[in-house]
Every structure is written in C-alpha cells, then in structure tokens.
Amino acid sequence: MRNSTQKLSYLQAIVEAQREEMRRDERVILMGEDIAVYGAQSLFDEFDHSRLRNVPISENSFTGVGVGAALTGLRPIVDLTIASFVYLASDQIINQAAKLRFMTGGQLKVPIVVRTSTFYNNRTAAQHADRPYPLFMNIPGLKVVAPATASDAKGLLKAAIRDDDPVIMFEDINLWGKKEEVPVDVDFLVPIGKADIKRAGSDATIVSVAGCLLPALAAAELLAREGIDVEVVDLRTIAPMDKETILASVAKTGRLVIADNSHKVGSVASEIAAVVSEEGFESLRKPIQRVATPSVHIPYNQALERQLYPTKERIVAAVRAIL
C-alpha cells in the first residue's frame, strides 16, 4: 500500500488531497463560491455540510472568515477559484494572514490554505488570465506553491493543509486533465520549499515555474535529439525558494534558462536570476535567459493570447542562445 499508486488527473489529485486531509483531521474545512455544484461535489456527498461552505460572493470576507476560523485552530481551505479573485482578498492574505504571527509575537498562527487557479491561455481575457505569483512571493510570511504534476499537486496541497502558516497554492487549469500515477499513501507529502529535478542533464539548466514544466520538458526532449543534454528543475515552491537545488544544477551545467509564465518585469524568473547572479555567478558561462510573458494585458482572442506565453519554441531558442 505504501508504494502503490492510482491514476489520477491533476484536478482529481487536488480533490483527493482535500478528501484525505478532511478524513484525517476534522479541523479541516473548505469554503468557496459555488463549490457544492462546481468543484467539490464529491466532498459534499461525503462530509458533513458544516465543514463545507458555499459562501456569498465576497472574496475578502470569506478569506477573512477563514483567517478568523484558523485562529481557533481550524484548518480552513479557502477556494478563490480564479487567480485574479485573489486581488480582492489580498488585504486579508497580505496584511492579516501573513503578518499575524509576527505582529502578535508568535501568539497567533494562521494555518489557512488559499487555493486558486491560473486560467491563462483559455480565452478568459485580461481580468481572468493572470498569473500573479510574483506579487505574493514578495510577501514575507506567505508560502507560495505552484505544482505542475498531479502528484506534486496532491503532495503539496496536503503539506500546505498540515502547515501551521498561510500557504497559497496556484493551480494551473491547463493541467487539470493531465493524468499520472499518484501515490495513494495518506501520508504522502511533497515538502514545501523543495524543487524537483524532473529531468537530469549536464549541458544547460531550465528552471520551470508552475505550468511551464510541460513546455520545458518538451524543449529538453527536442534538444536531446540534437545531443544537447538539458536538466529541467521544476521549482514547485515559489516561496520559500529552493536555492540549493537551483545553484547545484547551475554549478553543474553553467547555463541557465528560466521559464516563467508570469509577466517578465519583477517575475519569479527575475528573482531566480538575481539569486543565481549573487550566489552562483562563478558557475555561469553565459548570461541567464528569462523566458516569460511580456508586460501586456492578456487579450481574449486566442490568436493574440497564445503568442504571449513561454512555449517549447521560445525555450529552445533561449537555450540555443547560450550554448
């Protein structure tokens, strides 16, 4: 049982993570808009409805309610559905959840999990397609995770629920349907703050952020056919960042491309580039390349939208530029 797996999609893995943690710990509760019909139907079938709440359309309120509930020792999962809805709840997340332990001299802890999804590349236009991880990476006291596989989604969400501090999880709807074998062990956790080498290589390092893992792996495959051996490091946790794994990889390859679908200015890629420049400069044989989204709002029309994000082609071109 300990080593067995089951085939789950990314989205199913998220539901199973919540189910397992709700079974394990009755302090785990779930709140969100429309979740009884859209998102958590099977949890409503299994658990007492006092633990699941279809809430009023009021993001800052229900996140604040989550913070208040977390103060009593409950472990609320707050579902903010679409990443741009997180802006509405940002005062409760940034000014309250992230700061309370510090401001109260450690008297209070806020074990809340904020789940949200990035809806980019799906014709959802400027107000629904944001990938705002960098904004939250900039907040001390907040852990930010962004899994790119079903197993990581399950393991990171379970770890987030068990964590005593606020964690925000960015899910990627482009990955919802992606299936893989996922560990069934109820204590399978992916440690927060650990990157994962998804493909070992020696010629160059690609660090992928969130949903950029798939184009990064595809780029590595394409380059492998030409005899170029690329290492792909899946960041998984954006804050706190696993500097050790990134620096070790760059020490080995001497070349770094960062694939990040957030806007390039002040991106996660920018932070990784800064860290490697400060602490791994001697390893670098060529300048660091950031493949990110240009600083422009996301249009609805797919012909306009799809040209904006990191793709296999753009990542390959960036690797080639530094070989």
Partner: peptide, 27 residues
C-alpha cells in the same frame, strides 16, 4: 470587433452609448 479581440464575449463597452464596460470581478 470594436474592442479588438481584447475582451470576453458580451463584455461590451461603448463610450458613445454611455455603456461603461463589464467587470470580471464583481461589484
């Protein structure tokens, strides 16, 4: 498309018609 492919379908906007725009986040 008067909004040049930038907005979700039905999220019209017309200054001339005194019709502001429609927001994805509510209220």
């Amino acid at each position: 498309d008067p909004l040049k492919g930038r907005q979700l379908p039905i999220m019209y906007s017309s200054k001339a018609a005194g019709f502001f725009s429609i927001s994805g986040n509510l209220g």
